[in-house]
């Protein structure tokens, strides 16, 4: 993945999560992955188009999703209901949008697709041709793995 793209995504994830959760968040080691990977339970998905093609995936466990949705809505949710799903979707949208705005300032124009959310047990995501950058973010509510797979159009 183009080096210039990395920071905007990492920064956006931090800024937004810190803001919505009102607490410190920590970063895990960034790494690259190309094989298919297991999805922890809840995955919010935003597609990217424009100069590039790709997608951003926010992956977390059901417990983390519920805890984050509870925190953001300032109420205690027990299941990931419609409100909870909408909250996680919105979170994905906010982070991706801020990253794309930062990238726009650097001269890269992307568009995003409306976010979608996947929930379920034992899911796996595979896109063989694109290598994904994994940005693990550790919050008080649990770990979120932001999985960015973007490539230049050639």
């Amino acid at each position: 993945m183009r080096v210039e793209y990395i920071n905007p995504f990492v920064e956006a994830a931090f800024d937004i999560l810190k803001e919505v959760l009102g607490d410190e968040v920590q970063r895990g080691e960034l790494y690259l992955k190309s094989t298919s990977q297991a999805v922890m339970g809840v995955a919010a998905f935003v597609g990217l188009a424009g100069n590039v093609e790709g997608r951003v995936l926010f992956d977390m466990t059901m417990e983390t999703a519920i805890a984050i949705a509870s925190e953001m809505n300032d109420e205690t949710l027990t299941t990931l209901d419609d409100l909870g799903k909408a909250t996680i979707t919105e979170l994905a949208n906010m982070i991706t949008a801020q990253a794309v705005t930062k990238l726009h300032d650097l001269g890269f124009t992307f568009d995003l697709t409306p976010p979608a959310i996947f929930t379920g047990e034992n899911m796996e995501i595979t896109d063989n041709e694109v290598e994904a950058l994994i940005v693990p973010v550790i919050t008080k509510q649990g770990k979120i793995e932001i999985n960015v797979a973007v490539r230049e159009r050639t």
Binding site: M1, R2, V3, E4, I6, L32, S34, N128, E129, V130, E131, L133, R151, E152, T154
Partner: peptide, 15 residues
């Protein structure tokens, strides 16, 4: 130049 953070043992997709 296009600098990419990339592991060459993963698929290399350029022409």
């Amino acid at each position: 130049i296009l600098f990419e953070y990339h592991d060459i043992t993963h698929p290399n997709t350029f022409p």
